[in-house]
């Protein structure tokens, strides 16, 4: 019924996040765009492993002889989510320090290192 809609949505989210990075001048907005980029990749991984009519990859809940969805992308996504959180925390800490030193979080004004 829905065709390749999840993959399409992943592509659109990817594009929106990339465009969002260039459109926004606020560093925190840029961090939000990076988070959305990570989420779109996670969505891509999980939807890669979906099998139509498949059940949860847990024997206890799925019962005997059921078709299950692929478990590896889910394991990969778990790792990717935690990594994205770690990077987000670090980016935001750096932004806090940028605020402390520069008094602004406008991306065009944070440019002492140039040339």
């Amino acid at each position: 019924m829905i065709g390749n809609a999840p993959f399409f949505v992943v592509g659109v989210l990817f594009m929106m996040a990339l465009v969002g990075i260039f459109m926004s001048r606020n560093l925190i907005k840029i961090a939000i765009a990076v988070t959305i980029l990570g989420s779109s990749v996670n969505l891509f991984l999980v939807s890669l492993g979906y099998r139509a009519g498949g059940s949860v990859p847990i024997h206890f809940l799925a019962g005997e002889g059921e078709v299950m969805v692929l478990p590896t992308p889910q394991a990969m996504t778990l790792t990717a989510i935690v990594i994205a959180l770690a990077v987000t925390a670090l980016l935001l800490s750096l932004i806090m320090h940028v605020w402390r030193h520069y008094g602004t979080i406008d991306v065009d004004e944070v440019r002492r290192l140039r040339g």
Binding site: N4, A5, F8, G11, V12, M16, L18, F22, G49, R51
Partner: peptide, 30 residues
């Protein structure tokens, strides 16, 4: 911005070719 849109559109178009949604085919490892 234009190149970001181009890249997004290419990714959008290319992701249709992975496999049909909901049918990963034979999955040896999984």
């Amino acid at each position: 911005i234009v190149s970001a849109i181009v890249l997004g559109a290419l990714v959008c178009g290319a992701l249709d070719n992975v496999h049909p949604y909901g049918d990963p085919g034979t999955a040896l490892m999984d």
